[in-house]
Design a binder for these strands. Structure first.
Length: 241
DNA sequence: TCATTAAATTGTT
DNA sequence: AACAATTTAATGA
């Protein structure tokens, strides 16, 4: 029941990777933006692995080997490891791809990404990523849009941290994970337990439970077993109490 | 496929 | 942090 994760967990992409089935390929948003030739090259490089809760997808200081996307499950991005307190930057929801900034610069990771629950993570090798950047206009458009939207989220995250109301903090964090461009596969229902949400937002599970009740009373969301259904994205993003 | 059991998640104290 | 109630997942006939 504890979310604690042993620091020695191993990197997942080394073993047990496999190719993707067509159904999984259809869930990768940027593939649609590629020409047939580009797409073929991308699909050649694509692999899928499963990560257990606590597994690291990438670690601070490690060299970039893949560009990653979450097919299914839930991830968190934090700073941890070296100095200071653990700060969770953001949750990563299904359909989201991440690490492009680091991949573009060919720099070591400056953050950790860990699985919050058992997840399926897809990836393309950095060489394939480079090739797509060099050859595909559609891919460049996607990556640029991705960087832009994520910048917006990090700016919003700074404001969220200063919010006094726990209810609003929960609302804004949910809104981030319901972002239709960054996490297109979330759809109307985000699969996340109240414990996981508490861990992401930095509140107790009880408090998150209260907040969710408040938000559902307002008609912004509906609370379901093991997840949250989106009713009013604008309210979650900008609404006041 | 259905019924039973175990596990996970939630709402509340 | 601990509890009971509820929902889902797993198991086996």
């Amino acid at each position: 029941m504890s979310l604690a994760n042993p620091p020695g967990s191993t990197s997942p992409l080394s073993t047990r990777a496999r190719a993707l089935v067509p159904d999984e390929l259809a869930q990768i948003p940027w593939l649609q933006a590629l020409d047939p030739a580009e797409r073929e090259r991308a699909e050649e490089g694509l692999v899928l692995t499963s990560a257990q809760a606590g597994d690291h997808i990438c670690r601070i200081g490690r060299p970039v080997t893949y560009w990653f996307g979450l097919v299914d499950g839930l991830l968190k991005m934090n700073n941890d490891d070296s100095l200071g307190p653990v700060i969770t930057f953001t949750g990563l929801a299904p359909g989201g791809w991440f690490g492009e900034g680091t991949a573009l610069k060919h720099e070591p990771y400056r953050y950790n990404v860990q699985a919050l629950r058992k997840s399926h993570v897809a990836g393309i090798p950095i060489a394939t990523f480079d090739w797509l950047i060099a050859h595909s206009l559609g891919f460049n458009r996607f990556v640029m849009s991705q960087l832009n939207e994520r910048l917006g989220q990090f700016i919003a995250a700074r404001e969220i941290d200063r919010l006094g109301s726990p209810d609003l903090r929960v609302a804004r964090n949910l809104a981030a994970m319901f972002h239709p461009l960054l996490y297109p596969n979330v759809g109307g229902t985000l699969r996340i337990t109240q414990q996981e949400l508490a861990y992401l937002v930095g509140l107790s599970r009880q408090r998150v439970n209260e907040a969710l009740t408040t938000l559902s009373t307002l008609g912004w969301i509906r609370v379901e077993y093991g997840g949250v259904r989106l009713l009013d994205l604008q309210a979650l993003r900008h609404g006041q109490l």
